[in-house]
Design a protein around this nucleic acid. Structure first.
Lengths: 324, 324
DNA sequence: CGCTGGAGTTTGATCGATCAAATGCTCGCC
DNA sequence: GGCGAGCATTTGATCGATCAAACTCCAGCG
């Protein structure tokens, strides 16, 4: 394979110095227009492309984002991460950033991996998904002054407005409120909520959205409690959630996930409207409504927060109800 | 942030030269054991980690694999790629390789991206998924002497035994044969096939597996043709496949995908056994059997083919039927 | 006329590693 | 005793880019 052209080759061809070529690439505004033009022609003619590793060595910037690929996500929303990743890579690319994947069995292993990636100058910022209660990675990253953004708010623990922790999240509360409202608008009153047991941040947030909309519509507290179902999600058995919701004989159901919605749908049949969460292919296939996360928007927000130092350090995006 | 230790720092601490430290890391067998020991102690004490970019600049090897994240895969098997990616990253990490993602809108854009990644020494090998009939990327890669492996055989076009194209694939034919045989073993005879219209490599391969098993069991050709359904898959409407398969009133159905299996299942009810393909969460949730691709095995095979120059240049793996 | 300042460009050093060649050392053999 | 072979280690150059400082013009001004 032929030797690739370097800045020096371009410099020679354009009869300028290496540094001027470098300037044309990095700070074109300080180069006189006619010189710049000459260099740009030479770049195109030689098919020059900067050598990323050489640049990284010198600048100590890798322009690469590390993203962890979670092991566990074997649920129905595995495709969710997939779509998010796709948007992220697409937009990162447009911004001249690369996306490097890594995995780790547990948090400690992840911290070691992160250390390795940072020291090797492979990666200079991280995007974390599926943060959870008491996540040990967050304080470690903050303490080591590592740039990162999480997709998911910090539940509990430290202050949500802490500027050292940048995060982007989707407003599940608003999502369920909208879902519930849409059923209320159809004249339905007895709308059940099928979610997970209390204790998970996202789950409780979604539940609260349903409660708010129902309360606003004048539902009595004891009815609300009756209609509120929290079940452990079991990918191998939809029965639990299904039979529980069938017993209530609700006029409609809003759910914390599409797989719960699937359980409800199968138990209740197509005549009782069911609304899921995440708008997975299952929802599309079975034709029930679902709350869709704006993943492109999340990806965009993540990149913006990673790059800027000013402005807000967190972003809460509204999901959209996909009616069917 | 403190300055990271370099080879020179380690060399000084161990009272040897830079090169000896480098040798301990890369070719430990040529270093005298006691010297090696001293250097290793210094490495641990200083917490030294090689600077990946510096090494890449010098060696022109990036130890990074580029993987394209497809845009289209919005079907039910999007999670498939996800699981494959996870295995790949995990195993690549164990082998000291990194995985970099990229996207591209079309094949030409992908070729340009690949060029950029290669020239920037960001990536030195590629893994391509979802190869299709007449894929222009393959000849380009071969011609430019780029190391790559595809997950998916070359359908049609050039010789499947061509050593310049390394590939790994799953034997869908064997998978459907096994699925069909398992239903035959239960005493069922009228087993339908629900797949895509003829013309797709994977689809026809799976169909052929069903045909082989059925023919072996003594099914007459005209019955076979009657039981053979090819429908366009439409994620928004399962009706087409469902009503077609219901009309046949089969004793069992084997399908080319889980979403087709879902359509069959919904149309026929839980009493007619249905077998899907890909073992997605939907199959698990609804409790129908499915042919599972051995994705960890695929990832392992991909890495083996990428690394070795000897031995076979392609690998066909057998899937496993997951009964339920 | 000479001095200052700034825009535009060039020069030399550097990032952290590995390669290629040179050096020192020990051992065996004539 | 001298010499070549072979092992272990060191030295100097290099990969391709950017940084920091130096240099060259030329306009503006007292």
């Amino acid at each position: 394979m032929r030797r690739l052209p370097t800045v020096s080759d371009v410099a020679e061809a354009a009869r300028v110095s290496r540094q001027t070529v470098s300037n044309v690439l990095n700070t074109p505004e300080i180069v006189r227009p006619e010189t710049r033009e000459r260099v740009e022609v030479a770049i195109r003619r030689l098919g020059y492309r900067p050598h990323a590793s050489a640049r990284r060595l010198r600048t100590r910037v890798s322009a690469t984002i590390g993203v962890r690929l979670d092991p566990g996500t074997d649920g129905m929303s595995g495709a969710l991460l997939d779509r998010f990743l796709h948007s992220l890579v697409e937009q990162a690319d447009a911004a001249g950033l690369r996306v490097l994947l890594y995995t780790a069995a547990d948090e400690d292993a992840e911290i070691r991996t992160v250390e390795r990636l940072l020291d090797g100058a492979d990666v200079d910022a991280f995007v974390l998904t599926s943060t959870h209660y008491g996540d040990r990675r967050i304080p470690w990253l903050i303490e080591h002054d590592v740039r990162f953004v999480t997709f998911g708010r910090p539940w509990g623990e430290h202050d949500m407005t802490d500027r050292s922790h940048r995060w982007v999240d989707v407003d599940g509360n608003a999502g369920l409120r909208e879902a519930t409202t849409s059923l209320l608008a159809r004249g339905l009153r007895r709308i059940a909520f099928l979610g997970w047991p209390e204790g998970s941040g996202t789950g409780d947030d979604r539940r609260a959205g349903w409660r708010a909309a129902m309360t606003e519509a004048g539902t009595a507290p004891e009815v609300l409690d009756e209609l509120d179902l929290g079940v452990e999600e079991d990918p191998h058995d939809l029965g639990v959630g299904g039979s529980a919701v069938a017993e209530l004989a609700p006029a409609g159901v809003v759910c914390a996930s599409d797989s719960l919605a699937l359980a409800a749908r199968l138990a209740l049949g197509p005549d009782v409207p069911v609304i899921g969460y995440d708008d997975t292919p299952v929802a599309r296939a079975l034709g029930f409504a679902s709350v869709a996360q704006p993943l492109e928007g999340v990806a965009q927000a993540v990149l913006e927060l990673l790059r800027s130092d000013e402005g807000p350090h967190h972003r809460l995006l509204a999901p959209a109800l996909v009616e069917r």
